[in-house]
Amino acid sequence: MTGALDGLRIVEFVGLGPAPFAAMMLADHGAEVLRIHPPARRSDIATMDSPADVLARSRACVSLDLKSGAGRAMALDLIAEADGLIEGFRPGVMERLGLGPAEGLSRNPRLVYGRMTGWGQDGPLAARAGHDINYIALTGVLDAIGPADRPAVPLNLVGDFGGGGMLMAFGMLAGLISAARTGQGQVVDAAMTDGAALLSAMIHGFRAGGAWGPGRAANMLDGGAFYYGVYACADGRFVAVGAIEPQFLVALLTGLGLDPAAFQPQDDRTRWPAWRACLAAAFQTRTRAEWLARFEGVDACLGPVLDWDEAQAHPHNAARATFVEAGGVPQPAPAPRFSATPAPRPSPPETDRRDPAVILARWRGR
């Protein structure tokens, strides 16, 4: 059975991180994505272009010298037959190659031209270098994450992949729906600063409503609340607690052997540090396995903090096939799930370069 995006054709100019992630998401659900590499490619990331390059899964690739007239012409021919294009270079790079939106849309007026950058296509910082941590720092998001004494680095999930790749994939699909309806393509300007800011929409609402104060580890969802955070157990392993609602908090405290009446009102922030210390001491009396056994079947919003290997083996993840294997490489399965058109199973990246003329002829023959 084909995926929900079967029939869509996307040209991807290969870059790093968020742009390949967006292309991967589209390929995961059936789009035919063709990756264009330069003939000689150097990367500081050891796994890139290897069987372990999960972000390159399920896609064919071709080598084109985009600095040559023949290479540019072939790229434009491919673009002319595509529904969309994804690139993740700094503003102006594609224009200098003669492959910018003006050239692409003149050849293919229904083309959706996706541009993935950190700062966006315009603005004072548009031409500056940066990485995930720089982008989320500019939005206020980084300042809100971590313990009270300093911000913590949340991997590169907020800027690169949440605010970047996922917003790019959403933008591409919105543009493709519009093009199918109107026959007119357009440019999608997906900036990681914009996307990271968008991910913080709820927190801005909390701030406006007086439910979120300044500082880190001082609010309900940032580790400040005693009922929402991570606790160490006797064996040095951790559990995650999210007992926000009163009934879940009662179940949590009762399971810990504590008197729920002594922790009221639960949103008295002046008492959170003392109550957190009380829960920390309680959790230190048993191992993680013992606490999980104690709370088995209890709705207390308590669960284990799993490492990568434990997560893949957990019964819930195993039952849902949340992780799969492609080419011997364990990796997350495509998401989300569709009832009528399940996503194709991921395949390893095709590291052998295809002949672009053969692909073009097939695309034209559809």
Rank of each mutant, 00 (worst) to 15 (best):
residue 179 A to I: 12
residue 102 A to N: 12
residue 258 L to E: 06
residue 36 I to T: 08
residue 71 G to D: 01
residue 197 A to L: 15
residue 107 R to N: 13
residue 322 T to W: 07
residue 39 P to L: 03
residue 33 V to N: 00
residue 189 D to S: 08
residue 238 F to N: 06
residue 9 R to C: 05
residue 170 F to M: 10
residue 75 A to V: 08
residue 45 I to E: 02
residue 76 L to M: 15
residue 150 R to Q: 12
residue 171 G to A: 04
residue 189 D to P: 05
residue 336 P to R: 09
residue 214 P to F: 07
residue 181 R to G: 06
residue 18 P to C: 08
residue 2 T to C: 03
residue 251 A to K: 12
residue 111 L to G: 00
residue 200 S to Q: 14
residue 29 H to S: 02
residue 253 L to S: 05
residue 311 A to G: 08
residue 66 L to C: 00
residue 190 A to Q: 07
residue 211 A to D: 09
residue 183 G to A: 14
residue 41 R to W: 14
residue 21 F to M: 12
residue 268 D to L: 12
residue 171 G to L: 09
residue 255 G to P: 13
residue 296 E to H: 07
residue 314 H to E: 14
residue 249 L to E: 01
residue 134 N to L: 11
residue 345 R to T: 12
residue 54 V to S: 08
residue 168 M to I: 07
residue 318 A to T: 15
residue 14 V to G: 11
residue 64 L to Q: 05
residue 123 G to C: 05
residue 318 A to R: 15
residue 166 M to N: 08
residue 285 T to M: 03
residue 351 T to H: 02
residue 298 V to M: 05
residue 117 T to C: 10
residue 299 D to T: 01
residue 105 L to W: 04
residue 278 C to L: 13
residue 197 A to G: 11
residue 27 A to W: 02
residue 274 A to I: 00
residue 30 G to H: 04
residue 248 F to S: 00
residue 55 L to S: 02
residue 123 G to L: 11
residue 139 T to C: 07
residue 179 A to S: 12
residue 18 P to M: 11
residue 163 G to A: 00
residue 343 A to T: 11
residue 105 L to N: 05
residue 295 F to V: 07
residue 295 F to D: 04
residue 205 G to R: 07
residue 101 P to I: 07
residue 88 G to S: 08
residue 139 T to S: 14
residue 342 P to Q: 06
residue 318 A to Y: 01
residue 199 L to W: 09
residue 300 A to N: 00
residue 15 G to N: 14
residue 206 F to H: 08
residue 76 L to D: 00
residue 287 T to I: 12
residue 24 M to Q: 13
residue 115 R to C: 14
residue 322 T to R: 05
residue 194 D to T: 11
residue 204 H to Y: 15
residue 86 I to V: 14
residue 286 R to H: 09
residue 189 D to H: 07
residue 251 A to V: 09
residue 1 M to K: 06
residue 58 S to K: 12
residue 177 I to L: 12
residue 135 Y to N: 00
residue 83 D to L: 02
residue 337 R to G: 04
residue 313 A to F: 06
residue 67 K to Q: 09
residue 338 F to Y: 09
residue 317 N to F: 15
residue 181 R to N: 13
residue 307 D to E: 03
residue 65 D to W: 06
residue 207 R to C: 14
residue 117 T to E: 02
residue 337 R to T: 15
residue 337 R to V: 14
residue 281 A to G: 10
residue 181 R to C: 11
residue 358 V to P: 01
residue 33 V to G: 03
residue 186 Q to V: 06
residue 300 A to W: 01
residue 61 C to R: 13
residue 284 Q to V: 00
residue 132 D to Q: 08
residue 314 H to R: 05
residue 89 F to V: 09
residue 246 P to T: 03
residue 351 T to E: 04
residue 312 Q to F: 02
residue 254 T to I: 12
residue 27 A to K: 04
residue 339 S to L: 10
